[in-house]
């Protein structure tokens, strides 16, 4: 996505709030009270809004694993239903969901749901922005995994091939979503891990590390649902990595 022209967009937004006040009064109008920008959302009188809720309140809260499984199952079924039949896809080309559908279709059912990704987990994670690939991956392997699954991932590896220096692997021997979710038979177990891959990809992108993440079932005798998440960083990330390396940024 191209960045919008910096200056012009800025002006258009803020003008909306203050246009009525220009001209007559020479002194500054307190824009903080300018009504035009505010929304029409109603809030309960007891102030039960998202802003009144402590951010870490649910950090350690738990819910039933079964509930997650049910919701997840419905999400998977829904995603699958949305793309049954080429005509169906064709029909939806012009709707806002077209882009989602194309994602769905290219990866086969079901997709990693993108909306999860922008929700930033950062405040519960260490209060630093990762600058280098490794610190980002450690963030995912450790704190993020613990946040989601109450334990760290099992392994973090770098591709040994000189041709693919941009590939990293995060391994989970026994991923939650594969263990507890039963999905229709015709869908491989792999697809549930795609959900987690989507979350990882979202975190990478969100932190400014453009990446493609895919999930691969690589069972061992001991761990039948062992899953490897392959993280492939984009060209721009690798370029920046080199620059930062030279600059000595950690």
């Amino acid at each position: 996505m191209a960045a919008p022209p910096r200056h012009s967009t800025m002006l258009s937004i803020s003008n909306a709030g203050t246009s009525q006040s220009t001209g007559t009064d020479r002194t500054q109008v307190p824009q903080s009270s300018s009504p035009a920008q505010t929304s029409g959302l109603r809030v309960p009188s007891n102030r039960k809004t998202i802003y009144d809720r402590h951010l870490n309140r649910s950090r350690n809260a738990e819910l039933s694993r079964a509930s997650f499984a049910y919701l997840f199952g419905e999400m998977v079924t829904y995603a699958q239903r949305r793309v049954t039949g080429i005509q169906d896809l064709e029909k939806r080309k012009d709707t806002p969901s077209a882009s989602v559908c194309s994602t769905y279709s290219s990866t086969a059912p079901p997709p990693p749901p993108p909306p999860l990704s922008p929700a930033p987990p950062p405040p519960r994670l260490p209060p630093n922005r990762p600058l280098r690939i490794l610190s980002l991956l450690h963030l995912i392997h450790g704190p993020l995994w613990r946040l989601l699954f109450q334990r760290a991932a099992d392994a973090l590896e770098h591709s040994v091939s000189a041709e693919t220096p941009n590939e990293y692997m995060i391994t989970d021997n026994d991923p939650l979503v594969n263990t507890y979710i039963s999905v229709p038979r015709e869908m491989s177990m792999l697809n549930c891990a795609a959900f987690v891959a989507g979350i990882i990809e979202g975190v990478c992108d969100g932190c400014g590390f453009e990446a493609k993440v895919s999930a691969h079932n690589q069972p061992t005798e001991m761990w039948p649902s062992r899953t490897v998440f392959l993280v492939r960083f984009g060209e721009s990330v690798m370029e920046r990595e080199k620059v930062l390396e030279r600059a000595g940024v950690k």
């Binding site: 819910l63 039933s64 999400m75 939650l176």
Partner: peptide, 14 residues
């Protein structure tokens, strides 16, 4: 069996 509540919440929101 339990799971992180936010995982459920965010999944439903999604």
């Amino acid at each position: 069996d339990k799971v992180n509540a936010e995982l459920v919440t965010l999944t439903y929101g999604t």
